[in-house]
């Protein structure tokens, strides 16, 4: 690589990190807005998540008396691992800046690390809520981990790679043939995973504060101030990451393959359109379903396994392209 290319790649990396973190609250806001509109409510302002984060950032923190260093470290590690996952997902430029260093399995690992730290910290305060949220969240995470792996296998089989960049590039060059039944099945499985991983309805209700139903909210009940801001932003970031992965693989067209100004601008616009549309869709979906009983979520998980396995069988039966 020439120094010029290294500089550009670094710039892309910085831009993508800024984009992901900057967009995260906006997309959360879009989901909420869509949800309130379809429920005939005005809903909060579009910049409300940013205001909430600013408010939390200015506040102090109180830690539970009996808590240990785990409580203080967990929000940092949890957020940093999500941040570290950003460069492994294609945003508006291919190949992803750190694409050589890791594939989608790394993304699975980093998301799992983030979840693990939050769940451990939830037990530190010693309140019942923390334990309740922690066990439920790990339960859901464990059930959907096979889905993630199987979807990666299904997505990767046509191009023979588990690298996000290769998968997206392969899809983009295929044209309309890219939207095969196998891809759609795998993407449907991924959509279910997305609901579970980001704690949306029907798996978890992000708007609830009712003790018996909450999962993620119960885990982070004892947090405040900057820690809570990091956790909230992290939750949004997790959603953006998975949404972007979803749209990048399903609709790979338009991503920039060179450092041309026009290509980059087009890619950025298309990225925004895809992400906003996907978030709006998510909000729409949330109005249509009610929260499921916790143990029914297992059905959802098994359904996603079946979809992913079906996709892979289809790929193999048809033959790998």
């Amino acid at each position: 690589m020439t120094p010029w290319e290294i500089l550009l790649t670094t710039l892309v990396l910085a831009a993508e990190l800024a984009l992901a973190v900057g967009l995260a609250p906006l997309l959360t806001s879009v989901v909420r807005r869509r949800k309130s509109r379809s429920q005939r409510r005005t809903g909060p302002s579009m910049i409300q998540p940013y205001l909430d984060l600013a408010k939390l950032w200015g506040k102090g923190t109180v830690y539970v008396e009996s808590s240990s260093a785990v409580t203080r470290a967990a929000p940092l590690i949890s957020f940093a691992s999500l941040l570290a996952a950003v460069p492994f997902v294609p945003w508006f430029f291919l190949p992803a800046p750190l694409g050589f260093a890791g594939d989608l399995i790394v993304v699975v690992g980093l998301l799992a690390l983030s979840r693990f730290m939050t769940a451990v910290a939830a037990l530190d305060a010693g309140s019942t809520f923390g334990g309740m949220g922690s066990t439920r969240d790990m339960w859901i995470g464990a059930l959907f981990e096979p889905t993630f792996l199987l979807v990666i296998f299904a997505w990767g089989a046509p191009s023979g790679s588990t690298q996000a960049s290769t998968i997206v590039l392969h899809g983009a060059t295929l044209g309309a043939a890219h939207l095969s039944p196998a891809l759609l099945l795998a993407s449907a499985a991924f959509a279910l995973l997305l609901l579970a991983e980001t704690g949306r309805l029907p798996v978890d209700n992000p708007a609830t504060h009712l003790e018996l139903t909450m999962v993620h909210e119960a885990m982070v009940l004892e947090y405040g101030g900057r820690d809570l801001a990091l956790i909230e932003l992290g939750q949004s970031l997790r959603m953006v990451l998975l949404l972007e992965l979803f749209v990048a693989v399903l609709l790979p067209w338009g991503i920039a393959l060179s450092f041309g100004l026009a290509a980059l601008a087009l890619a950025l616009v298309l990225l925004l359109v895809k992400l906003l549309a996907a978030s709006a869709l998510l909000g729409e979906l949330e109005t249509r379903v009610a929260k499921w009983r916790l143990f029914r979520v297992a059905d959802l998980a098994v359904l996603s396994w079946v979809l992913a396995l079906g996709s892979i069988s289809l790929t193999y039966l048809v033959g790998v392209g």
Binding site: A80, L83, A84, G102, D103, S159, G160, T162, Q163
Partner: peptide, 18 residues
């Protein structure tokens, strides 16, 4: 095929920087 690649040191570095 191209397979997958992993330079876990880079991942760890990213994690540490973050």
């Amino acid at each position: 095929s191209t397979g997958g690649s992993l330079a876990i040191g880079v991942v760890a570095l990213g994690l540490a920087a973050g």
